[in-house]
Design a protein around this nucleic acid. Sequence first.
DNA 1: CTGTTAGCGCCTTCAG
DNA 2: CTGAAGGCGCTAACAG
Lengths: 388, 388
Amino acid sequence: MKHCFQLHDRLWVSAGSRMRERSCNGGGGASRNSVIVLRVVPNVLTPFMKRHQVTIIDIARQLNLSKSTVSRALTGHASVKEETRQAVLTLARALDYQRNMLAINLSSSQSKTIGIIVPEFVTSFFPVVIMGAQEIADQAGYTVLICQSNESYETEVANARAMLANRVDGVLVSLTRETRNFDHLAVFQRKAIPLVFFNRICYDIDVPKVVVDDYEGAFKATEHLIQVGKRRIAHLAGPMSLYISRKRLEGYKDALRKHNLPIIDDLIISYDLNLDRAKIYVNYLLDLPEPPDALFAVNDPTALEALKIIKAQGLSVPDQIAVVGFSNDYGSSLIEPGLTTIAQPTRDIGRVAAQLLLEQIDSETTSWKPITRVLKTELIVRGSTVKP
Amino acid sequence: MKHCFQLHDRLWVSAGSRMRERSCNGGGGASRNSVIVLRVVPNVLTPFMKRHQVTIIDIARQLNLSKSTVSRALTGHASVKEETRQAVLTLARALDYQRNMLAINLSSSQSKTIGIIVPEFVTSFFPVVIMGAQEIADQAGYTVLICQSNESYETEVANARAMLANRVDGVLVSLTRETRNFDHLAVFQRKAIPLVFFNRICYDIDVPKVVVDDYEGAFKATEHLIQVGKRRIAHLAGPMSLYISRKRLEGYKDALRKHNLPIIDDLIISYDLNLDRAKIYVNYLLDLPEPPDALFAVNDPTALEALKIIKAQGLSVPDQIAVVGFSNDYGSSLIEPGLTTIAQPTRDIGRVAAQLLLEQIDSETTSWKPITRVLKTELIVRGSTVKP
DNA sequence: CTGTTAGCGCCTTCAG
DNA sequence: CTGAAGGCGCTAACAG
């Protein structure tokens, strides 16, 4: 109920800087007409006149009501005479009145806002996650505050602060590739502000997490390569500080073990996800005396980059070298040959994470449980591993 | 100065829902020690105890100071004894005190937030614009509130409302493909809240705009096709409600005119940017008795889609049909052959738009000028028009 | 049904 | 240098 209302009847009052001002008023007295009159009134309270958004007081004065009544009418309180409610609503519309969430939030001590901190949003993965989260948040009447850390720890810390300062009711976080210290996030826990990790999670903080089964995904990816006949499978892994990198590495190794293939350290490279470096490592692998006949990359951008280099070198894909990525990003169906990859239920990740967060927001702190929700992945086979 | 401060010293207080509570206090009396003590105190003011974030009052009590002094110390006011300032700062840190922007914004009547409304952010264009805008906003100490309309007019209206309700100090807007009514945006003007359009602009509202030279870009694209020998050039245009679609169409036509080529109506299709429809139209074009020998698409996603279909039909690119897009999206260098396209200074669009917005925010309403900043485009030639 | 009072957390005069 | 008081806009008791 309330949520619906908030979505549609939101009014706003944003205030301004130092600008001249047009203030509306109803001249105390007898004015009870429904014709709206705007008069220029000096704002005696401040030395500099400032922009003034219409408030419930403006409405109250013009209608000769108390602000409480106006407030009640606006919030859809039952105990307001239909007639006055209409009067208020009409005038409010005429004046372009918008509720001031700043004030509402301050007095209600909650912002009806959830924050999302992502490392980047240029590849399609995070935007889609965000859309999923937004979908759920919207339904519940929450606004979403998005911050991207630009893969920088510093920025992530600043973002966390901004979230705190803006009093978000909860936060969804996916770490940057360089985050190793989690104090800035532990704060949320200490302050009992719901926090949910997704994708790039951290196990040092005991809160709900939403991930895909990275281990199994990597396992499937690797096994697929083995099944198409590959034996020297390289793995371009992410930084070991990221849990998902470790899991994917494990899956990769276990798949090799299961099929009695050796784990060759030279074919395993952990890197910081900076694509410029990826190039270097791919070239290194290709130049090996005994180059790999397949590459499993920690994510699609990396795999795509590798594929480009491999093609540029004139190697045949998948014959000489096959490639598998992880995520099923936008580009993987565009490149040629298409990139075989592990699809994640991206939008669901956002949905589930938001759901978990809202559940926490709506419940007693004491009942919070650090559930980890593991979503399923799916192998998408394309030309980079199997000829059409 | 102040901006830097805001960025780094932002504190937060978000408040909670109905949860048990831990409140800190300094027991009025003699406690002036610097050892921080947290005591559980019942919150007598509310029937249900609620989560309580530490406020300047908590600090004031523990230090036996007035909240004014604490406030001054925290804001870096000169007139505070160095000693007390230190005490305050230290305790604040120890308590994890975070300023409550909600309160600050309310009393200062400005939110230090700028809103950005984009139609979508799954293709790489808008995310990059946003990053550019964020870069400028950050420098100026502004937070960015991002809303995406999902190409839906309804959602755009709701987003505009949300911006108003949250009292953003200004808004950056790029329209959805279906927006034809602009009342929801005119409100900003009426309320004297700075508004800047970018990319998908609207000329009905007299505010600053940031665009690329769509006309010239389209002209260059078309002329390029002519120069590589194409004569029957089709144009898959965007909806005519969008200014940029009209401009691109114009550029296309004028290029044909300049080179004395006929403008063939059958080869010009305006569509709603829904990629599913793009497929239909591309097929229609290819099935024409006299099919085009080139296609200029209104944007890269459309061109990419066309390229896929063309390839699937086994036509040779660029010999039988050449393709040009617009934007230089992420995917255009991935697809094979690479997509020739008109590159936009995407990040700059965001930067410039944010700059324009901040300028308006910082100036008198009366001095606002509806400047239109036109940025340059660049033709990027790839395999879709010229053989490597 | 409606008016009055108080308070959300902070900053900003106005007085010491 | 510091304290007291008032107000930002709104909602929530508490009286009529």
